[in-house]
Design a protein around this nucleic acid. Structure first.
Length: 588
RNA sequence: GCGCCCGUAGCUCAGUCGGAUAGAGCGAUCGGUUCCUAACCGAUAGGUCGCAGGUUCAAUUCCUGCCGGGCGCACCA
């Protein structure tokens, strides 16, 4: 929670007659201001001590207060009803926390829990020949954030884009191409043309069921290495990849490993042979399956009747490949919750093959994105393009910047395009990351394009205001915290001037950033860091809006202390947003 | 039918290993800028934490059953 939990537990333990861990586990923050910063409930002790909880609390508080060293960060320990609460000394907390942030700088909040362990993160993984829809945003953005969070925690993440460039869908495209393919149009319209073919295939499939058989045959010919099929496949792939790069560029994402499913083509035979040798394969309705009924996982189809392979066959080969290539400590798959069974089957099969690392594989599922009244469907063409959403957001950010500038009678800022991109993209990305990933999300233009309230731009804006204050501080006092030689400026600043309850609350919020990171990485839940950043920004903004709380004032000593607190806040926001993959503009 | 996920304010969501009077944002109403960026801040209204049992000193939180929604359950990925 924060750095004072442990010391409080050490004071409580002797008074309670328990060990420090037990005492620590019972500590939680009280619900309201004025009740102290940490609390311990005494209800559980009532039975064995045959005493009322408030009486126990009074005794424990008195005993713990006895051993309290005066002048420390824990100023008082008092009974509050049935609770024993610790009251912290704001000036000391501020001094410790703010100096920690300044000392650590870019490393503030970072952890070493990963100990350099490799963690492949499979995310985004779009299908070639289908455009990048808004529903791909979730995997892309959550996965990218996890890469950042893992890196900040001392892991060695490897961002993997497992491109869907293999399978029957290419057979579908090849089948429809035989009827109406037009290379001139492909060159001209790119992926949009491929989408129109895909939609056309699915439309005609309803009338002509034999089309699906032809698609399977086409995929078979592709898998058999037939030259024309191969040529077209490569063409579709190149056209698509080029377009995905634009979106990744906007989002600021790059992968360490971009590898299509097709790469595993030659690696599947050994896996199938091993399954065969292990007696795990059975024939069923002319296809080849692994029977997992014993584990309530149904059957996994690994080879179709015509001999061609499936999704899970390729994923098995890919899992082995990742293991030998990266020697991972965890292996993450950021894929929608709809695929839960697939990953359970995959892990079970790997386990049956004696892969003792199978339990290091983690499916990181997330809720799907849909329209309020219907599912998004690429097949019917009923989708919104991610690029279109990003462009809208950037356009709106641009308008907001321009109207803000004209209201204040200022010219448009330098670097307008870049600023608009950072804000617009930040809004879309943060909007996705702030929600717990398990929930389904309903696509709503108003929500995605909102820049007010709990949004990315709010965090960016808070950071930008502090940067601007820092400039004014420099003009006024001739120095600025963080740029001073030892013994001057920062070191000489009296942080004990930060004695307000709101300042204490902000400091504790800052101090909790590493704990949020730890939990976010453990649970693969970026929203935990997003929430922490919103809390930090809100607490700073509350302080900032108070009329009698000015950073820059005639009181140089207080000004210095507040400037340091503000810059520590900015540091936390910049670091945290950085982990999440969101840029922070210097000015807004 | 079986399995997984979700159900908290009008809307979108937080709520830590069970703890004190369940919190934010949006929307609504009211208020705040001769002063560091109002993409901000404050106040008011708004809750049977889906329902019913169980465990516990204590349940939004854990367990069971139901209800509602979403998603899966062999030749798509």
């Amino acid at each position: 929670m924060n750095r004072y939990v442990r010391p409080f537990a050490e004071l409580l333990a002797p008074a309670l007659g328990c060990d420090i861990e037990t005492a620590q586990d019972g500590i939680a923050p009280p619900p309201k201001p004025g009740m102290g910063e940490l609390g311990f409930a005494c209800f559980a002790l009532a039975k064995e001590r045959r005493q009322a909880p408030p009486a126990i609390a009074a005794e424990v508080a008195a005993a713990a207060a006895e051993s309290l060293s005066p002048g420390g960060p824990i100023a008082a320990i008092k009974a509050v009803g049935p609770y024993v609460n610790a009251f912290l000394d704001a000036p000391q907390v501020a001094d410790e926390v703010v100096r920690t942030v300044f000392a650590e700088g870019e490393a503030f909040g970072r952890l070493d829990i990963g100990r350099g362990g490799a963690v492949p993160v499979d995310f985004s993984s779009p299908n070639i020949a289908k455009p990048f829809g808004i529903h791909h945003l979730r995997s892309t953005v959550i996965g990218h954030a996890l890469v950042g969070l893992l890196e900040a925690s001392g892991y060695r993440p490897i961002g993997i884009n497992h491109i869907g460039d293999w399978g029957t869908q290419f057979g579908q495209l090849l089948a429809i191409w035989q009827d109406q393919g037009d290379e001139a149009r492909l060159a001209d319209e790119g992926i949009d043309y491929l989408l129109s073919l895909y939609v056309e295939f699915n439309r005609r499939k309803a009338e002509q069921p034999e089309l699906q058989d032809r698609a399977r045959a086409c995929f078979k010919s592709l898998e058999d290495g037939e030259a024309e099929s191969r040529r077209l496949w490569k063409l579709f792939r190149d056209v698509s990849l080029a377009e995905f790069e634009r979106v990744y560029g906007l989002l600021g994402i790059r992968f360490d490993d971009v590898r299509g499913e097709s790469f595993y083509e030659d690696l599947m035979a050994p896996v199938l042979a091993e399954l065969q040798a292990g007696g795990l394969l059975t024939e069923s309705e002319e296809a080849t399956v692994v029977d997992l009924e014993e584990w309530d996982l149904g059957v996994a189809l690994v080879r179709k009747r015509d001999g061609s392979t499936l999704y899970i066959t390729r994923d098995l080969a890919a899992a082995d490949y990742r293991r030998t290539t990266y020697d991972f400590t965890r292996s993450l798959y950021v894929v929608g919750g709809a695929q839960s069974l697939h990953f359970k089957q995959m892990k079970q099969i790997l386990s049956l093959l004696g892969r003792d690392w199978a339990d290091q594989i983690e499916h990181v599922p997330f809720g799907l994105m849909r329209f309020s009244d219907r599912k998004m469907s690429t097949r019917s063409g009923d989708i919104i393009l991610l690029e279109a959403v990003l462009e809208q957001a950037v356009a709106l950010a641009r308008e907001t910047i321009l109207s803000g500038a004209s209201d204040k009678g200022r010219p448009p800022p330098d670097g307008l395009d870049d600023l608009a991109r950072q804000i617009g993209v930040g809004a879309v990305v943060f909007n996705d990351l702030k929600h717990r990933r398990a929930r389904d999300v309903v696509f709503d233009w108003d929500e995605v394009l909102s820049f007010e309230g709990s949004t990315g731009p709010y965090l960016q804006y808070t950071a930008a205001r502090i940067a601007s204050m820092s400039d004014k501080f420099r003009d006024r006092f001739g120095w600025v915290p963080g740029e001073q030689p030892a013994g001057q400026g920062d070191d000489a600043t009296d942080l004990a001037r930060l004695d307000r309850p709101e300042e204490l609350a902000l400091c504790l919020a800052l101090d909790g950033l590493p704990a949020s990171l730890e939990r976010a990485v453990r649970l693969c839940e970026p929203s935990l860091v997003a929430d922490r950043l919103l809390d930090i920004a809100a607490r700073f903004s509350t302080l900032y809006a108070q009329r009698d709380w000015k950073v820059i004032s005639d009181d140089a000593a207080t000004s210095g202390a507040r400037m340091m607190l503000a810059l520590a806040t900015r540091r936390a926001l910049v670091n945290g947003l950085g982990w999440l993959g969101i840029e922070v503009p210097a000015r807004m």
